[in-house]
């Protein structure tokens, strides 16, 4: 017996408002972060991820205030990231109420930032985020940075191991191929990852139906599944999803 599999709604935040990027481009506003977060807590979300897609300095300050407001009313773990480049930024978000920080592009440019964060806040507070896309010519998952727009030379599985060595206590891995398609999580990616590293894996990208969640927990062996639009537009209700998972023998918090 052990831990429940986690269901994690992701909220993309731009200038203090929740928006959802579909395939990392088109953006539609869907609402107030505190109201949405509260609704998700009541529905049984196990954790919330906030991705800051603001590009401006003013927007950054707004993000800190969003985290502060949310953590006054929502009492489940809050993971925050997007564009974080320094220990100071991490500190200010954790002081505002974030429980975990995820690093993506900044970790690729400077893995020492993950280590520095782990030393100050503990490995459990450092989440390594990876955006991966299958390279069919060379036969490996390639790491992309800058919101999935810029390819790197890194192999996602090896990079995952590197991030864990650097101090990441958990990995949030998005399949660029699957993201926004609603045709299921990229199971092969998660099979490779769970075989390669020992920390919890959050799967992200591709959820369209309840069965997609069943499959990623059963065949992908991940610890948590993240989704955005299927929850925001109420195509899948979290209580229904959890009941279905339980019927399929997936341990969930009900």
């Amino acid at each position: 017996m052990g831990l429940a599999k986690r269901i994690i709604p992701a909220l993309d935040i731009k200038n203090g408002q929740v928006v959802k990027g579909i395939s990392f481009d088109q953006i539609r506003a869907v609402g107030d972060p505190v109201a949405l977060a509260k609704r998700y807590q009541e529905m049984g979300a196990d954790e919330l991820v906030f991705l800051d897609i603001t590009a401006t300095i003013e927007g950054r300050a707004t993000m800190k205030s969003v985290v502060d407001q949310v953590s006054k009313e929502i009492f489940i773990p809050l993971t925050v990231g997007g564009g974080i480049r320094s220990l100071d930024e991490m500190t200010s978000l954790i002081q505002a109420g974030a429980d975990k920080i995820f690093l993506n592009s900044a970790a690729v440019k400077n893995p020492g930032l993950v280590t520095a964060g782990a030393q100050v806040f503990g490995a459990q507070a450092m989440v390594g985020a990876i955006d991966a896309k299958w390279d069919s010519v060379n036969g490996f998952y390639r790491v992309y940075i800058a919101g999935g727009t810029k390819p790197t030379a890194l192999d996602a599985i090896k990079w995952a191991q590197e991030l864990v060595r650097a101090g990441a206590g958990e990995l949030l891995v998005t399949s660029i191929d699957a993201d926004g398609q609603k045709k299921g999580y990229d199971l092969r990616l998660y099979q490779q990852l769970t075989a390669a590293v020992d920390v919890p894996i959050i799967a992200s990208g591709g959820a369209g139906t309840t069965k997609d969640f069943v499959d990623v927990f059963a065949d992908g062996s991940v610890d948590a599944a993240l989704a955005a639009s299927v929850f925001h537009y109420n195509q899948i209700a979290i209580p229904d999803l959890k009941r279905s998972l339980k019927e399929e023998q997936v341990e969930v918090r009900l």
Partner: peptide, 8 residues
């Protein structure tokens, strides 16, 4: 896994 991290 150690740490135990999540809902039990």
């Amino acid at each position: 896994k150690v740490p135990q991290m999540g809902w039990n």
